[in-house]
């Protein structure tokens, strides 16, 4: 069949123009909403354009018209099937206090894997340094950790001047940016079926274990706890939570037990990954602030007992938050 193309265009063009105008408005203004009558008209225009596309596809390969109609139908199809209401932060406070801890618990297996890998890395790092103290030169990436811990402690504790004076805010902002980047890597490397996330968490654990073993063997446990706990009690769990998000992504890629397509598994996992990363980002702001303004000060400026106490309380609160946050109360339970 060969159709009268010019008459066909002449008849249909007003409907295409109307649909195009509507689509332009929808795409320009995300808050644009139609009433039922408008929606019915929109659906009618979509169906009419679809029908025109079918006719054109069957009878002619006139490229411009086909591309034009495909674009119209494609845009309308996306608008009709869009799911914008599926994920919203809603009330930010409710989201952080309820949705975030619930999401962490929902993926407890991924959290356990993330935690276990970090712990295994710590054990490996500690074992390596305790067996061969020279190994820390290969393991530790930071120059200031290469020396003798006792010398560093003596230097830090004798410091009469504040070495971060005038740089606390910038140091804090750099820590926030850097830690967030590492967390994003821990999540993003989940795309390598979790292998990249595994390597990142394990290597992070190795560094942590090696530093801890080095300072403990040098008899500087108090300094170590006072130095790491205030910010580490939030920062280290954040990396583990980001690793959890990475394993949620890897799980969506590899889990074939559910009878749904890969695309659908990824769509389902997406909101949870974003929630985990959003929570991690907020917690890292706190960790960066504490690291710059508290962790870098040692005795005699701030007693270790205060720093250790502060860090321990943070850690306990964080664990309680993750375990209990967002659980149904007696009033809300079904």
């Amino acid at each position: 069949m060969i159709i009268d193309l010019s008459r066909f265009i002449e008849n249909e063009k007003p409907f295409w123009t109307e649909l195009e105008t509507l689509l332009d408005r929808m795409e320009r203004d995300a808050a644009f909403r139609m009433d039922v009558r408008g929606l019915k008209r929109f659906h009618y225009l979509y169906q009419r354009a679809s029908s025109a596309l079918s006719r054109i596809t069957d009878v002619s390969s006139e490229k411009n018209l086909k591309i034009y109609l495909e674009s119209l139908v494609g845009r309308a199809f996306a608008e009709i099937h869009k799911q914008r209401s599926r994920f919203t932060f809603g009330n930010p406070l409710t989201w952080f206090l309820r949705t975030f801890p619930r999401t962490v618990r929902k993926h407890a297996a991924a959290l356990a894997v993330s935690l276990a890998i970090t712990f295994a890395g710590c054990m490996f790092g500690a074992f390596a340094v305790s067996m061969d103290p020279d190994a820390k030169e290969s393991i530790l990436p930071f120059a200031h950790l290469m020396g003798d811990p006792a010398e560093r402690v003596a230097y830090e504790e004798s410091g009469k001047t504040d070495r971060l004076s005038g740089h606390k805010s910038s140091f804090s902002s750099q820590l926030i940016a850097n830690n967030t980047r590492v967390s994003v890597f821990a999540m993003g490397l989940g795309i390598t079926w979790g292998i990249g996330t595994f390597i990142l968490l394990f290597s992070n654990g190795v560094i942590l274990g090696a530093v801890a073993a080095d300072y403990i063997m040098a008899g500087q446990s108090s300094f170590l706890a006072g130095w790491l706990l205030p910010h580490g009690s939030v920062e280290i769990p954040c990396i583990i939570l980001a690793g959890q998000a990475g394993f949620v992504l890897a799980g969506a890629l590899t889990d074939k037990r559910r009878p749904v397509s890969l695309k659908q598994r990824l769509r389902d996992a997406g909101p949870d990954i974003v929630t985990l990363m959003g929570g991690v980002a907020l917690l890292l702001v706190w960790a960066g602030f504490i690291e710059a303004f508290l962790s870098q000060y040692h005795e005699p400026v701030i007693p270790y007992a205060v720093k250790i106490g502060f860090g321990s309380v943070e850690l306990i609160l964080l664990i309680l938050f993750i375990l209990l946050g967002g659980r149904p109360t007696k009033e809300t339970a079904p």
């Binding site: 199809f77 996306a78 869009k82 799911q83 914008r84 599926r86 994920f87 992504l249 974003v274």
Partner: peptide
């Protein structure tokens, strides 16, 4: 799948 983007897709 030709659908509109969800917020989580954009972020990820």
């Amino acid at each position: 799948q030709g659908l509109a983007l969800s917020f989580s897709q954009v972020v990820i």
